[in-house]
Every structure is written in C-alpha cells, then in structure tokens.
C-alpha cells in the first residue's frame, strides 16, 4: 500500500504543479470566482484529450446523439427534431439550466428525465433505460450544444427547497466512514486524500472517465463516490438524488459547460 500512496502523493504534487502552471487563458476560461473546473486539476494529457474533438472519446456519443435527435421513433412517428428543429439553435443554453423545476410536474427534473418525458409524451416511444448508450448519447448531444456557455441552474423560487435539500445531502456524513461529499469535494478540494479531487461540479457531465472507459452520468458518479465512502447508493431519480444533482450542478454555476468532459 505504501508505494501506492507515495506514488499518489507524487502524482498529486506534480499535477498540482501542472495545474498551477496551466496557461493563464485556460485558468480564466475554466474558473469562475473561487470555482475551478476539474479540467484545471487534470493532467495535460487528459486535458489534451478533451480539447481535441476528434481525440475526445465522448464525441462518439455526441455523434450518436445527433443521429438519434433526427431519427423518428415511437407511435407518433416523430423525432426530437420534429418539434425542436435544429438543436444547434434550439438547444443552445438549455442544458446549462438543468436540473430545473418543472411547473407542470411540480418538481425538478434532470435532463435525462426531460428527454424521456418527451419520448413518452410527444414521440409515444419507450423511455430509454437509465445509463443506456442512447440516453447518454442524447443527453451529451443536447448538453454539448451549450458548450462554453456558463452553467446557470436556478436555486431560488420553486427550486429553493430542493437546493437546500441537495446542500444537506452534500454536507451530511453518511456511510461507514462517516464521510460526506464535502469531506473530499469541499474547501480542500484539489489535494484531498493524496489525490487531486475536483470541487464537486457537474458542468462536464455526462463525462468520459478513463476509469470507466466510457461516458457516464453524474448519477453514476454519485454511485462511485458513495461506494468509496462505504455508503448506501441513492435510489436513482429519487428526490434526494435529483436534489443532489441540482446542488452539484449549481456548484458549477458560472463555469462553462464542458460536455463531454474527459476526466481520469
């Protein structure tokens, strides 16, 4: 275990060094006040993978999402594009506001749920299963239309109670180690636990994680973190999961949408 920890410490030190020397332009582009995107904690190689659309493996999902957008599916014979036209204009900025309170439903929903509601209601098609390639592809395609635009998730008005619930979920200790999300992704983010850990923002999700070797949703990331914390997973799409998702998205307010981000 000792060499591993020494290695991790060395990595952390070197990466922190690399991050500190990241080009000033990058630093400005991926910061908002005290907020620093996980991009700035990534190694130069990982950043380069994200920067080049051709080298970014997540773009394979974005490509597939583009095909799905204009592909008719379901009893109504419609596609996403039948109602929403050209995503490049109609979806620009949309995903930067998700999760979002839906007056109609009287609750907040995430982008994945929004897509599946459209599929069921407008397309009369089956919802895509959670974490399926199709749902990730459409989510990534839609969110990538907002790339570079600042996250702006509403935390006031009808969203205020959920935001408060999300903050509580983020800060309260859970699991056998008595850790919270904030224990790692809080004020000391960056060099926590001999590792470079992000500040807990979701502006890059769905994200291609090298450890997953695939694109994954922010709820999948919650599952990973909770497992590391020896804590129970959140029931998917439960109010607590959506509250946490909204809070984490709002933690990134002001940071640019990076979907599909590449992280270690």
């Amino acid at each position: 275990m000792r060499p591993l920890i020494a290695g991790a410490a060395m990595t952390a030190a070197l990466l922190a060094h690399a991050a500190a020397h990241a080009a000033g332009a990058d630093s400005a582009k991926y910061s908002a006040g005290d907020k620093r995107s996980g991009y700035l904690f990534s190694s130069p190689d990982t950043r380069a993978m994200q920067d080049d659309d051709f080298q970014n493996p997540g773009m394979a999902w974005v490509d597939e999402g583009a095909r799905l957008w204009s592909k008719a599916d379901g009893a109504a014979g419609k596609s996403c594009g039948s109602c929403h036209g050209d995503a490049a204009s109609t979806m620009k900025g949309v995903a930067a506001a998700y999760p979002k309170f839906n007056n109609h439903l009287g609750k907040a929903i995430d982008l994945e749920q929004r897509i599946n509601i459209c599929r069921q209601r407008a397309l009369q098609a089956k919802p895509f299963p959670a974490e399926s390639r199709e749902l990730l592809a459409l989510t990534a395609y839609i969110k990538s239309q907002s790339r570079g635009l600042p996250m702006h998730v509403a935390v006031d008005g009808p969203a205020a109670p959920l935001f408060a619930e999300g903050r509580k979920a983020y800060e309260e200790p859970r699991g056998q180690n008595g850790m919270s999300c904030a224990s790692c992704h809080g004020d000391e983010a960056g060099n926590r636990r001999l590792d470079t850990v992000s500040q807990g923002q979701s502006n890059g999700f769905p994200t291609y994680r090298l450890s997953w070797q695939t694109l994954g949703s922010v709820q999948r990331q919650f599952g990973n973190c909770l497992a590391s914390m020896k804590a129970k997973p959140l029931a998917a799409d439960s109010q607590e999961a959506i509250a946490l998702e909204l809070y984490v998205a709002a933690r990134g307010n002001g940071l640019p949408v990076e979907t599909p981000a590449v992280r270690k």
Binding site: F54, Q55, P57, A60, W61, E64, Q213, T214
Partner: peptide, 9 residues
C-alpha cells in the same frame, strides 16, 4: 489520418 471507433475492447 486520424481514426477512432467506439468499442469496449
């Protein structure tokens, strides 16, 4: 020439 293919390998 740059190539990429989506595959789990």
């Amino acid at each position: 020439i740059k190539t990429m293919i989506a595959h789990d390998m």
